[in-house]
Amino acid sequence: MVLPEWLAEPGLNHFLVVSAVLFSLGLLAVITRRNIIMVLMGIELILNSANLNFVAFSRYGLLSLEGHMIALFVIIIAAAEAAVALAIVLNIYNRFGTVDIEQISELKE
C-alpha cells in the first residue's frame, strides 16, 4: 500500500489539525448547548486542544520541556476552574431551579 508522504508520516501539522478540530468542536458546544454543564465540557475541550498544541510543539518545535510544564499548569488551572465552576453551578441551581442559560437572565432585565 503506497500512501503519499504527508499522510504516511504524521508530523507537527497533523497534531495541529487535530487540535484545531477539537477547538472548533469545543467552541460549538459552548455556543449551541444551553446547559451550563455542557458549556463547561466545551471549555474543557478547548483547554485540551491548547494543551495538545503545547505538547506537540515541545516534541517537534523549539519548545523543549517548557511545553510540558505549560501543559501541566493548564491542567492544574483547569482543575481549579472546574471545582469553582461546579460550585457556582450548584448555587445557580439552588437559586433559580434550572441550569438553562437562557432562563438565568435576572441581571439582564
Partner: peptide
C-alpha cells in the same frame, strides 16, 4: 508525543 508525565497527569486529573 513522548510526554509521559503529562499523559499520566491527564488521566489522573481529567
Amino acid at each position: 508525543l513522548f510526554a509521559g508525565f503529562v499523559a499520566v497527569t491527564q488521566l489522573l486529573v481529567y
